[in-house]
Design a protein around this nucleic acid. Structure first.
Ligand code: SF4
Ligand code: SF4
Lengths: 133, 133
DNA sequence: ATGAAATAGGACCCCATTAGTCGTATTTAA
DNA sequence: TTAAATACGACTAATGGGGTCCTATTTCAT
């Protein structure tokens, strides 16, 4: 519970790696071997990051990935959002639409949890890739 | 991802409820009906909270539950810890033992994530049941 | 004493999500 | 033309979350 998914972790490790080599082009093979990450899984994470415009893909031989923006301009929140495809939500009513929770109208803790939610967002949004290099 | 479990939510709703009626004895039936929570599920959550010494059980007819301490002295963190049985850990290496992560020695993000972890703990520990009444 | 109301707790099951694998197509530098 | 790389969908396996059911035990009230 409350755990980041491996995909997000892999994404962060990869982003950090690219930043750490001064945004030189890096391949999935390189990264997956360096950090012992299953290459197929990492490959798909990279593709999501590409579609999410956080990194740029360079296809073909000698290809790979580079960051799409400065590391100081990419937050952990960005990575989570793109990799996970969904919003960070500490409870169902924050992550999805409120109606999805059958208890919503009777729920007495949604407002207090909203504060925690807000705090969380702050924390994730304020930590940039550049800070984890 | 990053969602609180329903059990934790149910626990919080129940604790808040008891606090809101000035710690008068409250039953599972009462609470489950009031908030539309499946009673069997709530029952087991209450049993965990009892074993975790956050509430007191009163068995037999006319029985029920009361808080074991003042609402100002019970944090959301306490509830999570007791209901979930495990520590809040934003990553495997925080929730369990580090060795459980096959990547641990190569992982470059565990320290930055540690900061987030710490922040999270602060947030959960500082919010008390008394604040959500 | 007896019955009703309550907690205690184990055994299951269902389902959604996560993690990972495999196969194949496409792009492009050398 | 070939090799190195990304793109991407289909599939499987494992895990955990959420819920149901059943039975035992405790204790108040009659
Ligand atoms: S409404 Fe209450 S119970 Fe439903 S998801 Fe939001 S917080 Fe959780
Ligand atoms: S070591 Fe790195 S990858 Fe493994 S759990 Fe901790 S943070 Fe996640």
């Amino acid at each position: 519970m409350l755990k980041l998914s491996k995909k997000v972790e892999y994404g962060l490790i990869a982003m950090r790696h690219i930043a750490s080599v001064n945004n030189q082009i890096s391949t999935v093979k390189e990264i997956s071997e360096r950090y012992s990450i299953p290459s197929d899984v990492l490959a798909k994470v990279m593709q999501k990051l590409t579609r999410g415009k956080l990194i740029l893909s360079h296809q073909g031989a000698m290809g790979g990935y580079t960051l799409a923006r400065g590391a100081h301009d990419i937050s952990v929140m960005d990575v989570i959002g793109v990799v996970e495809g969904t919003q960070v939500g500490i409870a169902q009513c924050f992550a999805e639409t409120p109606e999805n929770c059958s208890i919503y109208s009777n729920c007495t803790i949604k407002h207090p949890l909203g504060k925690i939610q807000h705090n969380l967002e702050q924390v994730f949004a304020s930590m940039k890739v550049s800070e984890i290099v």
